[in-house]
Write a protein that binds this DNA or RNA. Structure first.
Lengths: 199, 199
DNA sequence: GCTATAATTCAACATACGATGAATTACGGG
DNA sequence: CCCGTAATTCATCGTATGTTGAATTATAGC
């Protein structure tokens, strides 16, 4: 059995396996509890190889979460949708994309809870992929506040369903969630101005 | 300077200081990153004293989060509130109680993200202090599902505001949040049946 | 085909953690 | 006033972590 040294085959698949293992391990355990050794073991690789490719743990985390969704996805999805369907559309798109136990979104949420850089990543991600495009589409003065409320509700559903494991939500299907949450998002987006959020 | 041995004064205040330090440290850093040594340092105490009083880290965590709010608080607060004000009432009560950076709720949320026992604690807490009393008050078939949606939104606002630090929500006052979120909760609670959540 | 370079593992490091046991000091009941 | 007991610290252990450097093997360019 060959133990040390370079092994035959394409190195890029090894690298991809590391990223895959990192994603699912971070998603399952969060940033601090996901150890490099465990990720390496999952990827069938020595710890040092991770350092070789990614330098340190934080860089690996960043690399593993870099391109989950790009902002144009949401923007494109909103294209040509009638105003009164936009809430359901956002709910369905976001939830079906993100409501999976080992999705990068859940991973980021887990990590963000205990790790400041991860929280910054998630904040930026929410800004770029949710708040920015939604606010731009709405094109009203308090658009960002409305979009932030939408984002907060989606985050809450994901948190309650996948992290806390609230029974009533964990038992619900995506369709049922969309039916329940969609109209709420709709209301946040198109209800005529209420007392209002911050300046 | 006295270094070792028992020190003068009431030991119960020392114990209380440990619990206080534990709460704020867990709230700030989450379960894994909040080290016993740091908590001890914050409390001005040696690590071993924590072990003496609480046994191990998990027991300390449980002790530090044991009685933040009891179920009757919510139940009592809902007493005699007219049906169309209940959403705002829950929003105001929950948010003013929980929307503080070092509140036990935020601490539990942080810990729940990466620690299964903490997630179980939070799940039970949500069940007992939110879903149970609200569902009982509603007294309709899908009461628990409605209450779970309320809880998820509240969790989302807390998560987005205090953990992720979404600007638009962090900048908003409690009153503004209540104005925005209250009607949504109201809708979840009293809107005539929609397509529905799980069985 | 040779060789420089990249890929990969092994071994080890310094550090920090949670836990434990022994020692020292103050308190409280008789 | 004395003595058992509780409160508190010190010292240390075993373990696990992230990181680093040296050694070994396959690949790719000439």
């Amino acid at each position: 059995m060959t133990r040390t040294g370079r092994r035959p085959g394409d190195p890029s698949v090894t690298k991809a396996e590391i990223l895959h293992a990192a994603r699912s391990t971070f998603a399952e355990l969060g940033y601090e509890s996901a150890t490099l050794r465990r990720i390496a073991a999952t990827a069938g690789v020595d710890v040092a190889l991770i350092a070789h490719y990614f330098g340190n743990k934080e860089s690996l985390f960043v690399a593993a979460h870099d391109l989950p969704i790009n902002p144009s996805d949401i923007a494109g999805m909103l294209d040509g949708v009638s105003e009164d369907e936009v809430g359901e559309r956002i709910a369905r798109f976001s939830l079906s994309m993100l409501a999976v136990d080992d999705s990068p979104a859940i991973s980021l949420m887990r990590a963000a809870s205990t790790n400041a850089p991860a929280a910054a990543m998630l904040r930026e991600f929410i800004d770029r992929t949710l708040i920015d495009p939604i606010a731009e589409m709405l094109d009203v003065e308090d658009g960002r506040e409305r979009a932030a409320l939408v984002a907060s509700h989606l985050l809450g559903v994901l948190f309650a369903r996948h992290i806390v494991g609230v029974r009533e939500l964990a038992a619900a299907s995506i369709d049922e969630l969309v039916d329940a949450v969609g109209p709420t998002l709709q209301r946040y987006l198109t209800e005529p101005a209420w007392s209002g959020t911050a300046t």
